[in-house]
């Protein structure tokens, strides 16, 4: 492979021409972020409007119409007890997407509080909290979440809580790092000097200013949180029958895949589409926030002179 990287146009490393001038390289427009937006917004709106868009009652059993292929009557076919799969995919989206969003909301708000306290007070509290976070991160996420959800008992809520628990350290570390750098800023030292109470400083200065990276992280996480909760449902640790949920639908459909391929295919495709959308949006926001990490030059440890 012949390469001459130095003549390549790379927005993060402008190359001087013969006269020593650097020309700005035009950044590409965020087409992929828009694709991601569409991939997320379509299933979100479809699930929200499920009661109006669904062609059938998602839990209506009809044993005479079992395992029907997709047709004008049943767009995605029917399942083993004759329930309409299109309506169930719409209805299941509320739980699958809702679980993903619930997870990041719980994990992020817990992380903001703990990370803020840890970064601001430092000392013993910080030491203990960070070691606890290390312990949580010592488990592969799915494995710890499985054990927790099994202990919490069946149900979508316990799997959401379990997944949120394993995602908390990410936010604690993120917010703590932000607070550590913010607390040295002049406006914060000024507020301290003026005698502002701690909760005021945290609430008015530190937490709002550490939010942007948290927001980016939630978008990046929403997809993987959704995948994790769907995986738990697939393994039997999530919603209880007859409620529709994408991971659980793939699980109950997998025995039919050889002859009724549509049954596990549609709910799984819905997971892939939505997760991909969240990831595309998250990637774009991350690049916007930290240009050094832009897709053409991820951040790695730079050598020090």
């Amino acid at each position: 492979m012949s390469v001459d990287v130095l003549t390549q146009r790379d927005p993060d490393y402008p190359v001087p021409d013969a006269a020593g001038r650097t020309r700005p390289v035009r950044r590409r427009r965020p087409i992929m972020a828009w694709v991601g937006f569409v991939l997320v917004i379509v299933p979100v709106i479809a699930s929200l409007l499920a009661p109006w868009l669904a062609t059938h009652d998602p839990n209506q059993v009809n044993l005479t119409r079992r395992l029907q292929p997709p047709s004008a009557e049943h767009w995605f076919g029917t399942d083993e007890v004759g329930r309409d799969l299109f309506s169930r995919v719409l209805d299941g989206g509320r739980r699958s997407i809702g679980a993903g969003i619930g997870v990041v909301l719980i994990a992020a708000s817990t992380g903001i509080v703990l990370g803020g306290l840890s970064g601001w007070f430092g000392g013993k509290l910080d030491l203990i909290l960070m070691r606890v976070m290390d312990v949580i991160l010592a488990f592969p996420a799915l494995v710890l979440a499985m054990a927790l959800a099994a202990a919490l008992g069946p149900g979508l809520m316990s799997s959401v809580l379990a997944v949120a628990f394993v995602r908390v350290p990410v936010y604690v570390r993120l917010v703590r790092a932000q607070v550590l750098s913010l607390r040295e800023r002049e406006y914060v030292t000024a507020a301290v000097a003026a005698g502002a109470p701690t909760w005021h400083i945290l609430r008015r200065h530190l937490i709002p200013n550490s939010l942007p990276p948290v927001v980016v992280q939630t978008t990046l996480d929403a997809g993987s949180a959704m995948l994790l909760t769907a995986t738990m449902s697939f393994l039997g640790l999530g919603v209880r029958a007859p409620a529709a949920e994408w991971g659980a639908m793939v699980n109950s459909g997998r025995v039919y895949l050889l002859d009724q391929w549509w049954y596990p295919t549609y709910p799984g495709a819905a997971i892939l589409m939505t997760a991909m959308g969240f990831n595309l949006i998250g990637d774009y926001w991350r690049d916007r926030l930290d240009p050094r990490r832009a897709s053409s030059a991820p951040k790695t440890t730079r050598t020090r002179p």
Binding site: S224, T231, G247, V250, L257, W261, T265, G268, L272, A275
Partner: peptide, 26 residues
Amino acid sequence: SRSVSVAGVSMPLFWLGIVALAFFYG
């Protein structure tokens, strides 16, 4: 490689396995 990467992190592994089974085995 970028597309493979996005598809990889967004892919429900359990579903990929099932679809691959349906195709290569079924």
